[in-house]
């Protein structure tokens, strides 16, 4: 049987939380010697091959079918696979790694508090400045879908690799879409979240790639593993 690959975060806070989650579920990982800590096996589940990847790599691997199972943020999964159906199945939210993906604007915009206000501003800005209002984000897909749903089209996405919340102060964008847990970082950067600007309430999620190759044996091995976390595979 081909092994079922499970991708889990390789570093940072999320890795610690995943380790704790495994411990709680009584699932023990064993490092593979010589793999420099990037491969592991699961005690009692010989058909599972664990790979340690970065969180965003896990999301794109799930979307592309390069791994069978994965644990990463729902925000990253939805960003990597905008139309989830047929590509990735979200099996179980794991109760940690909480983060909201939100639309935030400068606090000095005292006339703006809703997406409808932002729509007005975008149109006025395009008219007055002869260019589109810029939204800095690493969530290009989520932003596009949410803005389209809110009826906003007069804007432009500026891809941001990091420190997105500083973009309005730096002058590289007017507003942002980013994750926040407490809102403190946004506040410190003079930003506020729009009343109806929460795009997604995300948390770490156990997910299954529907794009990967599966057979009956592999499904059985995967079902046994995810069962330890209280999840079942979709039929």
């Amino acid at each position: 049987m081909e092994p079922v690959t499970l991708a889990i975060p390789s570093k940072g806070r999320l890795k610690e939380q995943v380790d704790a989650c495994f411990a709680k579920a009584g699932v023990a990982l064993k490092q593979i010697a010589g793999a420099r800590g990037y491969r592991a096996t699961v005690e009692g589940h010989p058909g599972i091959d664990v790979m340690l990847l970065s969180s965003s790599e896990i999301a794109s691997s799930l979307a592309g079918g390069d791994v069978h199972l994965g644990i990463t943020g729902e925000d990253l999964i939805r960003e990597a696979a905008p139309e989830l159906e047929g590509r990735v199945a979200l099996l179980k939210p794991l109760g940690f790694g909480y983060a909201d993906v939100v639309v935030a604007v400068p606090r000095s915009w005292v006339d703006v508090s809703t997406m409808a206000d932002l729509d007005d501003i975008c149109a006025a800005y395009a008219h007055k400045h002869r260019k589109r209002l810029r939204i800095a984000t690493k969530y290009t897909q989520l932003t596009r879908a949410f803005f389209a749903h809110a009826g906003i089209s007069d804007y432009r996405i500026v891809p941001s690799a990091g420190a997105t919340e500083g973009a309005p102060t730096a002058g590289t964008a007017e507003a942002i879409v980013d994750i926040t847990t407490t809102g403190a970082t946004l506040k410190a950067n003079g930003l506020k979240i729009l009343d109806d600007g929460v795009i997604l309430k995300s948390q770490a999620t156990l997910a299954m790639s529907l794009a990967a190759e599966w057979d009956t044996d592999m499904r059985a091995a995967a079902a046994a593993l995810v069962g330890r976390f209280g999840a079942t595979l979709p039929s």
Binding site: R107, S108, D120, R134, G171, E174
Partner: peptide, 29 residues
């Protein structure tokens, strides 16, 4: 009065908008 509302936000950025744009829109509202 609108300028005072903006000033209350301290050194929050304006994005590419001007104070006049904010004043104008709130005046209409």
């Amino acid at each position: 009065a609108i300028e005072a509302l903006i000033d209350k936000e301290g050194d929050a950025p304006l994005g590419g908008r001007t104070r006049e744009e904010i004043v104008e829109r709130l005046t209409i509202q």
